[in-house]
Design a protein around this nucleic acid. Structure first.
Lengths: 254, 254
DNA sequence: CGGCAAATTGAGGTAGATCAATGTCGGTGG
DNA sequence: CCACCGACATTGATCTACCTCAATTTGCCG
């Protein structure tokens, strides 16, 4: 509908490398055809509202281990996840890190920055991932323009809280075996039915400081039971028998 | 300033007994002299705004174990804590309960109900506690009337999130000894310098399903070390050497 | 006084941590 | 192409923090 001032669309190279792991700009998002648009922030926005965004929405590719943002950084963008998985970490008073959520397709990242102006927590990619980068300035425009926006924002905010609570109970309680099962079920499946994972060490951290050896043992056990099939020899990509795995995950209190 | 329509102030007996444990109405809150008013929702509200509340703010006394509200109940009130301690519980997909926060003096309870209309989670008193009951209808009036209100609400909301994250890291990670130490430090101290606690079982649940025997052993150990002094014979009330206890709590990663 | 709920204390079992060795893949440089 | 390397995974052998089961004690309340 409107011309989204194409001249502002200069391709920005985001360079925030972390060893060889990197974050890179990947092109402009075609929001109109994006499946995520339905589930994300814009669910009940009209096409007209949507077209009124005068800033470009970039698409960013993250490799495993890449840092999307760190705690306290000045925030100009929010993000929605298109593919892959990322973790949100928060730091305790005495320096301990704790994962408070895992974000997948459709989830909105960085929401509290909309209120605070700075990012709260730390976001790292677990697998290869794609995110869309939404300029906060655009969102503020929308807030002025469209009436239902702020309510949608609040709902989204609330659902973030719910997400965290679900994470806590699912991932924080029970035997390692159960919790690992629940965690694996949260990883997104790609087109060919495979599930790309992160390192065993990282899986252990996601479960809240579980030794990587313990994870390894549980993984091999699950493979032996036919719940997992290793695609990659290292078991970085697996095929999951979701019914069986759900069974394992549900062995909790009556 | 305004007449707060005293005729609406009929003393309501709240009866929601739970065995002998009960919730009871205790009188009308004198908000103007309430120390909590500073830290709570009304921090930057003018006296005039405040006087414009046309519903009574009741004060409620809760005995240990009393249920303030349960998940899914229709919500007409928010609460602020005047004294004592309460826990917030959330239920996981497979029925496990997990404590997601402990609320003490000045904390605001039930905030998400302001958006949803129903309570999210379950709130139970850990010790004797007093809370103020704020009619949501009043808050909506304020939202219309005073401009800074909604922002204050969002900040409060955000700080709730931060509280939960702090809880997670402090209480969810490390040895039982450390975590117990951090938990004890969170209990409020009453006028005479004593700290009323809850049962060992309950302490175990707060730490996320720790056996009550383990708690008992740790408590006696801490007493033997002179970190705690038991006032009550049963150790339901203790005097805490906060420096020593903080030391115990900080034995974490370098 | 009897009865009940909470706390303590002991003994033994177990999930998971820790230490250590080996195996395997993927890359990088000669 | 091979040789080497570093990161990751596996596997085994202990070790230990914590759970579980069980007995006993101690208030507290009708």
């Amino acid at each position: 509908m409107t011309d989204s001032s194409p001249q502002t669309r200069k391709p920005i190279r985001i360079e925030r490398s972390r060893g060889e792991r990197s974050v890179s700009w990947n092109g402009f998002s075609d929001c109109h055809t994006c499946a995520v648009r339905q589930s994300a922030l814009f669910a009940h926005m009209s096409e007209a509202d949507f077209a009124a965004i005068h800033y470009p929405i970039d698409e960013i590719r993250l490799r495993p281990g890449a840092l999307l943002y760190d705690n306290g950084e000045r925030a100009d963008y929010l993000f929605t996840v298109r593919s892959g998985a990322l973790k949100i970490e928060h730091e305790g008073a005495s320096g301990q890190r704790r994962v408070t959520a895992m974000m997948v397709r459709g989830d909105l990242i960085g929401l509290s920055a909309y209120v605070l102006g700075n990012y709260d927590g730390r976001v790292v990619a677990l697998t290869d991932a794609m995110v869309c980068r939404l300029p906060i300035a655009s969102l503020r425009e929308l807030e002025r323009g469209s009436p239902g926006f702020m309510q949608g924002m609040q709902e989204k905010w609330h659902s973030t809280l719910v997400l965290t609570h679900a994470w806590l109970t699912d991932i924080g309680m029970g035997s390692v075996r159960e919790r690992l099962a629940r965690l694996l079920l949260r990883f997104p499946i790609d087109a060919d039915g495979a599930t790309p994972l992160c390192t065993r060490r990282e899986l252990g951290l996601l479960l809240g400081d579980v030794a990587l050896e313990t994870i390894s043992r549980q993984m091999t056990a699950l493979r032996a039971e036919g719940v997992l099939e290793f695609i990659d020899a290292r078991g970085r990509q697996v095929r999951i028998d979701r019914d069986k795995l759900a069974e394992v995950a549900n062995l909790n209190r009556a």
